[in-house]
Structures are given as structure tokens and as C-alpha cells.
């Protein structure tokens, strides 16, 4: 059984606030889904054949387009800006 505390912990990890009024519904829905996906426990896996082959496809690091190509359009959408820079709130406190 999922507890309200567990849901709140996951929400805080995901930077989401779950209002108190919605919490029971989140817990109930979460429980049902976790029970459903828990069926996977019954699956026996062949460790040699059922592992997906992954490979990384890498390209050389570098600028795909000349600097400044997209600047104007992207900066236009910044909620808060100073010139071509994005303004955010102070991260490190001096306290």
C-alpha cells in the first residue's frame, strides 16, 4: 500500500506540489497502477536472450549552427531577461 507520505516524497523529488485535497485521489490511483504494473513480478526473464542490445550513437561535439542563429527568437520568449541574458532568481544565498 502506498502511503500519503510516499506520494508527497515523490512529488517533492519531481518538484511538484500535491494539494492536500487531491492527495487521497493521487494515493488511490497510484496504488491501483502500482498493483497493475506489479504483474511484472510473475514474468520469468531469460537473462541471456531478453536483454536489449543498446549502443550509444555519438556525434562530434560542436556548434550545429553559427552562434546567434536562434538567439533573437529564443530570447523573445524569456519571461524575464536582461539584454540577451535570461534572468533567474538568486540561487546561492549570502546569508
Amino acid at each position: 500500500m502506498t502511503t500519503p507520505e510516499e506520494v508527497l516524497k515523490l512529488a517533492s523529488l519531481a518538484r511538484i506540489e500535491v494539494p492536500e485535497g487531491e492527495l487521497p485521489e493521487f494515493v488511490e490511483g497510484f496504488d491501483a497502477i502500482v498493483a497493475y504494473v506489479g504483474q511484472l513480478e510473475g514474468l520469468t526473464i531469460n537473462e541471456t536472450s531478453d536483454i536489449l542490445p543498446y549502443e550509444n550513437i555519438l556525434r562530434e561535439d560542436g556548434n550545429a549552427t553559427p552562434a546567434g542563429t536562434w538567439t533573437e527568437k529564443i530570447v523573445a520568449q524569456f519571461p524575464q531577461k536582461s539584454g540577451d541574458s535570461l534572468s533567474v532568481k538568486q540561487i546561492i544565498s549570502h546569508d
Binding site: L40, L43, D50, I51
Partner: peptide, 22 residues
């Protein structure tokens, strides 16, 4: 966030990826 969290990733995410292979 839950299925990727430490302690659950093997039971859920890795198992699910193996199901894809199967």
C-alpha cells in the same frame, strides 16, 4: 519518479525492459 527510484528500479524498470526483449 517511483519506478526509477533506488530500490525499485530493478523490480520495475529493468524488468520491464527485459519484457521488451522477450
Amino acid at each position: 519518479t517511483f519506478v526509477l527510484s533506488s530500490g525499485y528500479i530493478d523490480a520495475y524498470y529493468r524488468k520491464a525492459q527485459s519484457a521488451r526483449g522477450a
